[in-house]
Amino acid sequence: MRAVFAESMSAERPLEGLRVDELPEQPAPEGFRRVRVLASALNHHDLWSLRGVGLGPDKLPMILGCDGAGLDDDGNEVIIHSVISSPGWQGDETLDPRRSLLSEHHPGTMADYVWVPARNLVPKPADLTFEEAACLPTSWLTAYRMLFTTSTASPGSTVLVQGAGGGVATALISLAAAAGYRVWVTSRSGEKREQALELGAQDAFDAGARLPERVDVVFDSVGEATWAHSLKALKPGGAVVTCGATSGPAPSADLNRVFFLQLRVLGSTMGTRDELGRLAQFLTVSGVRPRIDSVHALDDARRGFERMETGDVFGKVVFTHGS
């Protein structure tokens, strides 16, 4: 079968290990079901894998991809939940200390077929395209959990999204605007600030700029480059919700500010299968759709990876696998 996979890893030149080629189908683990993937989407996780973060040499070659949608062997249209919990785990999959993501221990979605536990299949609403549905399982699900499960803010609150442009940021803007939040965003790019306003943000600021007033919650997936600004942007008693650190870990927690202003730092990771189902339903009810940066055929996946590596992305990079 066709597959996009990591053949080797390099921290400095990650794309040198990227291959698009044929791989043999592997036998499915017990309790797994096969899905014919019709669309998949790219995440920073895939670039980190090619850099050797979270993926050991003993796992190579590893098919990449956490996001996907397609048809199961019964012909059902499904979205693939990529959090693989350990056998027998009950409850919130993100709290399982032995959890993994597709493409870490089990082959990922960037192939003609993927095998996942039966419980990881979520019905795809008919009004979502496969390309739109493929955007949801990682960055959009992460944003949904950050906003509706982890965040302390309610609709009507003012929230700040740091680093508008990536999959999580564009999802946060779209979801929060649709749910009635006042959404502010930051970006170093004037073009991305304009695009964020088109998605529903009420105002957009240069990275690190002084805001007109302090906000209730900051959503930060950037880390080191934005952390100090995120804490300074909060009202007393406010919260920063973090789901990652693409620019590196924060150099200082600024604990004096945290305890004196009674700020909260809330971590959030991915989301549950049930949250993925509710996210898909929210899109159906609200009419919100994922912002897609570009669409590439699976055979041309390298172009999508190159686009993400340069950082010139606004929304999701999607791969189509053919019908």
Results as ranks from 00 to 15, higher is better:
219 F>L: 07
140 W>P: 02
219 F>Y: 13
32 F>G: 07
129 T>H: 10
147 L>G: 01
65 G>F: 01
30 E>N: 12
214 R>G: 08
217 V>H: 07
146 M>F: 10
257 R>P: 00
149 T>E: 03
32 F>T: 08
181 Y>H: 02
52 G>M: 04
118 A>I: 07
58 D>Q: 13
203 D>P: 05
12 E>A: 14
66 C>M: 08
244 G>I: 00
142 T>D: 05
86 S>F: 09
59 K>M: 07
109 T>E: 05
56 G>K: 10
65 G>M: 03
68 G>Q: 04
221 S>R: 00
293 D>T: 01
250 A>F: 12
307 R>P: 09
310 T>N: 02
22 E>Q: 14
295 V>M: 06
73 D>W: 01
3 A>F: 13
7 E>H: 11
76 N>H: 10
51 R>F: 02
294 S>H: 11
113 Y>I: 02
73 D>F: 06
161 V>D: 05
321 H>E: 07
146 M>S: 03
33 R>P: 01
173 I>R: 05
312 D>F: 06
197 L>S: 01
23 L>Y: 10
102 L>I: 01
116 V>G: 09
72 D>Y: 06
118 A>S: 15
202 Q>L: 06
82 S>M: 13
210 R>G: 01
57 P>C: 11
248 G>L: 08
268 S>F: 06
140 W>L: 06
161 V>Y: 10
6 A>T: 03
189 S>N: 05
101 L>R: 05
119 R>F: 11
121 L>R: 12
321 H>W: 07
107 P>I: 04
286 S>P: 02
189 S>W: 05
91 G>E: 13
83 V>D: 07
112 D>E: 15
65 G>W: 03
83 V>S: 09
122 V>H: 08
282 F>C: 05
209 A>K: 08
281 Q>V: 01
86 S>A: 14
206 D>K: 09
163 G>F: 02
199 L>T: 03
107 P>W: 14
105 H>P: 00
204 A>E: 12
200 G>S: 07
70 G>S: 07
53 V>S: 03
52 G>N: 01
149 T>M: 00
217 V>P: 09
39 A>I: 08
260 F>G: 00
254 D>H: 13
60 L>P: 07
316 K>E: 12
151 S>I: 10
135 C>P: 01
303 R>E: 14
192 K>L: 08
244 G>M: 08
303 R>F: 09
32 F>I: 04
209 A>G: 06
225 A>E: 14
252 S>C: 11
104 E>T: 11
247 S>N: 08
32 F>S: 06
66 C>D: 06
256 N>H: 09
257 R>Y: 00
79 I>T: 03
117 P>L: 05
117 P>C: 11
196 A>C: 13
242 T>K: 10
306 E>C: 13
230 S>D: 10
122 V>C: 08
281 Q>H: 15
319 F>Y: 10
231 L>S: 13
62 M>T: 03
205 F>M: 12
238 G>R: 12
67 D>Y: 04
143 A>M: 05
231 L>E: 09
214 R>Q: 15
167 G>A: 12
34 R>H: 08
54 G>Q: 07
120 N>P: 10
33 R>C: 13
163 G>S: 07
307 R>S: 05
135 C>M: 04
297 A>G: 14
253 A>F: 14
261 L>D: 15
21 D>T: 11
112 D>M: 09
130 F>D: 12
108 G>A: 04
20 V>F: 11
84 I>C: 12
228 A>W: 00
